[in-house]
Amino acid sequence: MITLACQIALVAIGLSVVLNVYRIVAGPDVLDRILALDTMVINAIALIVVIAMLFEAPTYFEAALLFAMVGFLTTVSFCKYLLRGNVIE
């Protein structure tokens, strides 16, 4: 039953990534694209965790954690650039 749930989740998350790609392509503003990329990172974390459960491979955890950190930093530095014109002041 858990395998089936994981497969359903993989399909749903894959669909979410497609919707994020639509928003990245459609825009219209650069902030929409930043937000879509941020959502995509969160979807990727969920994807990694589900795959780790499906394949019973606990080492995927580090990848998910690093993804979370890098995703947060990129989003904040993009926004900081738009707010201030530079990243490190």
Binding site: I2, A5, C6, I8, A9, A12, I13, L15, S16, V17, L19, N20, Y22, R23, L35, A36, T39, I42, N43, A46, V50, M53
Partner: peptide, 16 residues
């Protein structure tokens, strides 16, 4: 797992 995937889908759907 299914509820989590559903909410992720709703979040991305709202974005689109």
């Amino acid at each position: 797992i299914v509820v989590g995937a559903f909410f992720l889908l709703v979040g991305s759907f709202a974005l689109a």
